[in-house]
């Protein structure tokens, strides 16, 4: 059974970075290639001056890996898979080979990483750090992967963390009962996820419905506008979202 998926993603600078005239450290990417549809989101570490570059590298290269090596990746064990993704990302960081302290230089590009990729009826999802992955089953949106913070709100795990391999979570399964996925950064989660009840806002279901009803470019624009006018107003942080929705299967098309 072949599914057809539609994907959109957007990221906007938060009020804190606007005030400090710093770049947006959230980055999102979506792609359909080689029969794989992937959405990827990364949130750069607050005080690392080049983490916006790190977030962009993480999203684009993770997406590249997913669309080129999905079959290989789905079969790997968690630790091996984490190593494969993190190496691919870290190898792209523009660090001088003669750098005195390459580990320290690498930290400048630190970001979280969240992704979902689907091929045929199988999905692979990964999550390192804060933010959240949601999925839609029937008409209900549920949480696939919860935010990973340390004890304190301003601490989490990054692509460059020494313990990143231990904290990179992976999920695999069938999409037969799943109709959509959404990735959100911690800035967006502030409006879309209740920390007390560990539940999702009704807005999540509503946004997933947009992809069913409207063309991709319309949804893309709506996502951007709502990030700017609604979600950004409820946090000082950058905000980003990426979502994908199953439209129909080849059986339905026939």
């Amino acid at each position: 059974m072949i599914s057809e998926w539609k994907a959109v993603s957007a990221h906007v600078m938060g009020r804190s970075h606007m005030k400090k005239q710093l770049p947006c450290q959230d980055h999102t990417f979506h792609i359909t290639q080689n029969d794989v549809t992937a959405i990827v989101l990364a949130d750069g570490a607050g005080s690392c001056p080049r983490s916006h570059e790190g977030a962009e590298i993480a999203t684009t290269h993770c997406a590249y890996l997913l669309t080129h090596s999905f079959t290989d990746m789905i079969e790997k064990g968690d630790r091996e898979l984490a190593q494969m993704i993190l190496s691919e990302i870290k190898n792209q960081f523009p660090i001088d080979e003669n750098e005195k302290d390459p580990v320290e230089s690498m930290k400048q590009f630190a970001s979280t990483l969240l992704f979902v990729a689907v091929r045929d009826d199988t999905y692979l999802a990964g999550h390192l750090g804060d933010g959240l992955i949601a999925y839609q089953e029937g008409e209900e949106c549920k949480i696939l992967s919860y935010p990973q913070n340390h004890e304190f709100i301003n601490t989490t795990f990054f692509t460059t963390s020494l313990d990143a391999l231990e904290h990179f979570q992976f999920y695999r399964g069938s999409v037969q009962q799943i109709h959509g996925f959404m990735l959100m950064s911690d800035g967006s989660a502030e409006s879309l996820y209740s920390r007390k009840d560990q539940s999702l806002a009704t807005a999540v279901n509503k946004m997933m419905g947009w992809l069913e009803k409207y063309p991709t470019d319309v949804v893309q624009e709506a996502l951007m506008q709502n990030l700017k006018s609604m979600l950004r107003e409820k946090t000082m942080d950058d905000c980003s979202l990426a979502m994908m929705k199953k439209l129909r299967t080849n059986e339905e098309i026939v």
């Binding site: 502030e190 996820y193 319309v218 949804v219």
Partner: peptide, 14 residues
Amino acid sequence: MDDLFLQHKELIEN
């Protein structure tokens, strides 16, 4: 197209 705008009541107050 009105439903392309989120409402405050559809969001969470953490």
